[in-house]
C-alpha cells in the first residue's frame, strides 16, 4: 500500500490510535478525539470491532462522527440501545469491555487524568465539565488507551484533580487500591506513542511519529521525558487510512454544518 508524506500531526495521532484497536475488541468510546480513532479502525482494519458509547448504544456504526455522545446516528446504527443504568452496571461494571478509550484535559506521567477543574476544586480557575463516565471507565475496562495533543499545559508534572485514576503514584498503586484491571497501557499523542514502564508505570516514549524529534516531544511535555532504549518510528499513514479519515471528517462536517464532531 502506498505511503504518503502529506499529513498533519492530528491525522497521524488519530490513525496511530486507530491501529491499536482490533476486531475482537469491545471498546467504550469516550467523548472527543477517541471517537474518530475508533471509527477509523472500524472503517479500515477492524470492521467487526464493537463500539459502545455511554448513552447506551452497543455495537454502533455511525456513518458520520457524532457531535454529542447521544446523537441519533449512534442509536440508529447500533445493534441495540440499552438504558444508561444498564450500560454502567451490566456492561461496564460487569467487566464486558476490553478497552476504554479516553481523552484528557490534563494528564501526568502515570496516566492519571483531570477533566474536572483547573486550580483548586472549591475555588476553580476554570471549571471543566467533569468526569462523566471516566472514573469507572478507568477502573472497570480491562485496559485503557488515552489520546491527546501534546502541550505543556496538558501534560503536567502534577494534575490539579484526579478525575480518573491511572497508575496513581506508579508501581503497584492500582493493586494496592484493589483495582484488578490494567489501567492505561497506551498513550497516543500527535507526536509519539507512549507505554508505561512495566515496573515504575511511568509512561515512556516508545515510538516517534515520522519527522518528530525528541526535542519536540520534550518541549511540549511538562515532565522530564524518558525515551525507550528501543525507540521506533511510527509508520506513516497509509493511503487507505488517510482517505478513510478524511472522508469521515468531510461527511461529518457536511452533516453538522461545519462542526467536526468528536
Amino acid at each position: 500500500m502506498a505511503m504518503i508524506t502529506d499529513f498533519t500531526p492530528n491525522e497521524m495521532m488519530t490513525i496511530a490510535a486507530s491501529r491499536a484497536l482490533s476486531n475482537k475488541d469491545v471498546c467504550f468510546v469516550g467523548i472527543g478525539a477517541p471517537s474518530a480513532a475508533c471509527n477509523v479502525a472500524r472503517l479500515t482494519h477492524a470492521p467487526d470491532i464493537t463500539l459502545i458509547y455511554e448513552s447506551g448504544t452497543i455495537g454502533t456504526a455511525p456513518n458520520v462522527l457524532p457531535l454529542s455522545i447521544g446523537d441519533g446516528e449512534l442509536c440508529e446504527t447500533a445493534l441495540t440501545t440499552v438504558s444508561v443504568p444498564e450500560m454502567f452496571r451490566y456492561w461496564l461494571q460487569g467487566g464486558r469491555i476490553s478497552i476504554g478509550f479516553l481523552g484528557a484535559a490534563q494528564i501526568d506521567r502515570f496516566g492519571n487524568i483531570n477533566t474536572t477543574v483547573i486550580g483548586d476544586y472549591n475555588k476553580p480557575k476554570v471549571r471543566l465539565p467533569g468526569g462523566g463516565g471516566a472514573p469507572e471507565i478507568a477502573t472497570s475496562c480491562k485496559e485503557v488507551f488515552i489520546t491527546m495533543k501534546q502541550a505543556t499545559r496538558g501534560m503536567v508534572e502534577k494534575i490539579d484533580f484526579y478525575t480518573s485514576f491511572g497508575h496513581g503514584d506508579g508501581g503497584d498503586h492500582r493493586r494496592r487500591l484493589g483495582i484488578t484491571t490494567k489501567g492505561p497501557t497506551l498513550l497516543i499523542t500527535d507526536l509519539a506513542l507512549w507505554k508505561p514502564d512495566p515496573e515504575t508505570k511511568e509512561f515512556n516514549v516508545v515510538s516517534l511519529h515520522p519527522g518528530v524529534t525528541r526535542e519536540q516531544v520534550q518541549d511540549t511535555c511538562g515532565w522530564k521525558v524518558h525515551f525507550s532504549d528501543h525507540l521506533e518510528e511510527t509508520p506513516p499513514p497509509s493511503e487507505l487510512e488517510l482517505t478513510t479519515l478524511r472522508e469521515l471528517q468531510a461527511r461529518t462536517e457536511r452533516a453538522h454544518g461545519g462542526k467536526k464532531g468528536s
Binding site: 454502567f88 461494571q93 476544586y121 472549591n122 468526569g131 477502573t139 484533580f161 484526579y162 478525575t163 485514576f165
Partner: peptide, 13 residues
C-alpha cells in the same frame, strides 16, 4: 452500592 470511585478525587470533595 456499586464498584466505583476507586482512586478518584471526587471521594475527597
Amino acid at each position: 452500592v456499586f464498584r466505583g470511585y476507586r482512586g478518584a478525587g471526587l471521594r475527597d470533595v
